[in-house]
């Protein structure tokens, strides 16, 4: 069995386990390539039936419009049911405060909105697209990762996980994050997208965009950032990961097809999350966020 097939089998098995073991699961959907792959895997897992759970999108309000349009297109295509939680609602309700300073980002605020949505819809499991090769704290996470009723990840007390035997039993109020593509690498995701001919938001491919340079990175102009002395330039860029527009840097790139992107990644000397400012804030930034309930 080739690796990609092996990874697909593993993912579909995990997705069916989520459906089988939980009452009210949901698929966390950001609109990025990993969640598009997951959506496709979910549709395969229950074919010809519909996906037996809703999708949950946490909308920070700091979106790339292209990603939102593509999201709505995919919901039609896969006949999926979408729930949206708005970070703006959490801010308006006074639950979180908008960040100040040079890089106001809503990335950390979305945790509160996510936990609220989980409570509101009584989701007992959330399927996420995290991969262990993304970041060191992610590399430690189980396939079924239990969160307590505060949404916290207790990294020192993770359940043992043996073979393919997944234990999703939880007490009421707790929930599980399930990661079917844990063992995929960034390249696997791209090769799968190619093999399955999946459609992606246009920002993954090279395009002209107004950007400015800050701390050695090309940032897209957006209404959320204060641009002081930096010069705005129109460059040919693409995005390697799709987070918030306020915290995702572009890479200068001419890669316009999936093959070109695969070549670019293979020869790249920077890691994928190297373009995510949210991870650069401190050593252990991801772990700190995960402990309090981040994806």
């Amino acid at each position: 069995m080739n690796t990609l097939k092996q990874l697909e089998e593993e993912a579909i098995y995990i997705i069916r386990e989520v459906a089988g073991q939980f009452n009210q699961p949901a698929l966390l959907f950001s609109g990025g390539k990993d969640s598009i792959v997951l959506l496709h895997l979910c549709s395969k897992a229950f074919y010809p039936g519909k996906i037996p759970f809703p999708l949950l999108h946490i909308d920070t309000g700091h979106n790339f419009q292209e990603t939102l349009d593509h999201r709505d297109y995919l919901m039609e295509k896969y006949q999926a049911h979408l729930e949206v939680g708005y970070v703006q609602d959490s801010i308006d309700a006074g639950k979180v405060l908008e960040e100040k300073g040079k890089y106001p980002s809503r990335n950390s605020l979305q945790t509160v909105t996510l936990l609220d949505a989980i409570e509101k819809h009584k989701f007992d499991a959330c399927i996420g697209g995290a991969r262990r090769d993304e970041e060191k704290a992610r590399a430690k996470e189980r396939i079924f990762s239990v969160r307590d009723d505060f949404g916290q990840w207790n990294e020192k007390l993770q359940r043992p996980e043996l073979f393919d035997l997944l234990n999703g039993r939880i007490h009421s109020g707790e929930n599980v994050r399930a990661f079917p593509i844990s063992n995929w690498t960034e390249l696997d995701v791209w090769e799968y997208i190619k093999q399955e001919k999946l459609e992606l938001p246009s920002i993954y491919f090279s395009h002209k965009r107004d950007v400015y340079q800050r701390d050695g990175q090309w940032l897209p102009t957006c209404s959320f950032h204060l641009i002081e002395k930096e010069k705005i330039e129109n460059k040919t860029v693409r995005f390697r990961t799709v987070g918030d527009i306020s915290c995702t840097a572009a890479v200068l790139s001419d890669a316009n097809t999936i093959d070109e992107i695969v070549d670019e990644i293979k020869s790249s000397s920077f890691s994928e999350r190297g373009a995510r400012m949210d991870d650069k804030r401190s050593e252990g930034a991801m772990e700190e966020r995960k402990k309090v309930g981040y994806f």
């Binding site: 590399a139 990294e155 844990s182 050593e283 252990g284």
Partner: peptide
């Protein structure tokens, strides 16, 4: 070694993949 406590103590607590 990915966890803060691991780097603090210079040991491995949980499996890294």
């Amino acid at each position: 070694d990915g966890l803060l406590t691991e780097r603090e103590q210079g040991i491995t607590i949980d499996v890294s993949n």
